[in-house]
């Protein structure tokens, strides 16, 4: 398309009729009214270099604050000389996933299972220590590290449990179906914030006296159970979309329930449910912020806690803008990926 025709296309789009033109002008004024002060604050009048509050020019954003606090936003209160462990855990995780994605088709499943067995314990070992590494208490974990840790480990509980309850809800056996429905509807019916309170108060109460259970583990277990119910509904969508003939044919070939489920039904159903499950994972990342109420400091919690620093008074907007942007980038990327999966399936 040449330049003049694209220009006339835009003129047609924005000023095609008098009414369209009027709406465009109103919207342009509205955009300018919001965007100009915002850009002035965030870019033009902002302070980018410096080291203390005194370097900041009033009226604009003070990104010096984010620079000074960057380590905390990423790692929380994790000891500075041990932060390489978090980095290695992150790199191991990314490499693990990349190796599964890049592996030849016939090795994918085996490699994936191996990674599933190796990576989670490795991550916990690297982060918490022991076996030659210094112990770092979960109290010191935080920031983006903790947001990702909680999201990933909660979904390690939520996905298998969700698949089980989705299968249970579709089962022919009446009692199993009833138990699954009660489990799913109960956890879907209560607020997540209440579940986090519940987990942190009840888990120590219902376990035998001597067993102490880590504060962070309680939050992960609580979130894992709620998200399991939502995952179950996502998986159910896939199970229901699969033609009945698939299971019937597998049974006719002589496969028993678990073989038919594992070899025929689930591989197809999970592929259909993957976009919905990704959406639940996005919701999980967003809901991870709620651990704030039991004073665990994830990314948003660290941002909130940084507002109390007497050396950096009045940095509310900077802290919110930075943490909000990170959440947005992660969730937006995941939601785009989920949408592209869905489109590919429809084609």
């Amino acid at each position: 398309m040449n330049r003049s025709s694209s220009l006339s296309l835009w003129r047609e789009r924005l000023f095609g009729t008098p009414f369209t033109g009027f709406v465009s002008v109103v919207l342009f004024v509205l955009i300018a009214w919001i965007a100009i002060p915002l850009i002035r604050w965030a870019v033009i009048d902002a302070t980018w270099v410096g080291s203390t509050r005194a370097d900041c020019v009033p009226g604009g954003a003070c990104w010096v604050f984010i620079r000074a606090r960057f380590g905390q936003f990423m790692y929380g209160l994790y000891p500075v000389d041990q932060r390489w462990r978090v980095d290695i855990a992150g790199i191991a995780f990314v490499l693990g996933i990349a190796s599964v994605i890049l592996a030849p088709q016939r090795l994918k499943l085996k490699l994936g299972l191996v990674m599933l067995v190796i990576l989670p314990p490795l991550g916990i070992w690297l982060l918490s220590g022991g076996f030659g590494l210094r112990y770092v208490e979960t109290r010191e974990w935080g920031g983006l590290t903790l947001t990702l840790f909680i999201s990933i480990y909660s979904s390690l509980i939520a996905i298998p449990l969700g698949i089980l309850f989705a299968l249970g809800r579709q089962s022919e056996l009446r009692i199993i179906r009833l138990i699954s429905v009660i489990f799913i509807e109960f956890w879907r019916g209560v607020p997540i914030i209440a579940v986090i309170f519940l987990a942190s108060l009840l888990l120590p109460l219902i376990l035998p006296g001597g067993i102490g259970i880590d504060r962070l583990a309680r939050a992960v277990i609580g979130l894992g159970f709620v998200i399991a119910a939502y995952m179950a509904e996502a998986v159910r969508g896939g199970l229901q979309a699969l033609p009945r003939g698939q299971r019937e044919a597998a049974t006719a070939l002589g496969l028993n329930y678990w073989k038919a489920t594992g070899l025929i039904v689930l591989p197809q159903a999970l592929r259909i449910s993957l976009p919905a499950m990704t959406n639940e994972f996005i919701a999980l990342i967003k809901n991870t912020t709620l651990v704030l109420v039991v004073s665990i400091l994830d990314l948003l919690g660290i941002a909130q806690a940084s507002l109390a620093d007497p050396n950096w008074v009045g940095m509310n907007m900077e802290a919110y803008a930075f943490s909000g942007a990170i959440y947005w980038l992660i969730c937006f990327a995941l939601s785009r990926w989920s949408r592209s999966l869905e489109k590919r399936r429809r084609l």
Binding site: R13, L14, T20, V23, S24, L27, F28, I31, I282, I285, K286, N287, T288, T289, L290, L292, L300, Q304, Y320, S323, G324, Y327, W328, C331, F332, S335
Partner: peptide, 25 residues
């Protein structure tokens, strides 16, 4: 209206990908 629908789309994408607790705080 292209601009109106784009602004509405931007609002939707902005709001849906940020935690509610963020908005509350």
């Amino acid at each position: 209206h292209w601009l109106l629908s784009t602004i509405a789309g931007a609002y939707i994408e902005f709001v849906r990908n940020i935690p509610l607790l963020f908005f509350v705080l």
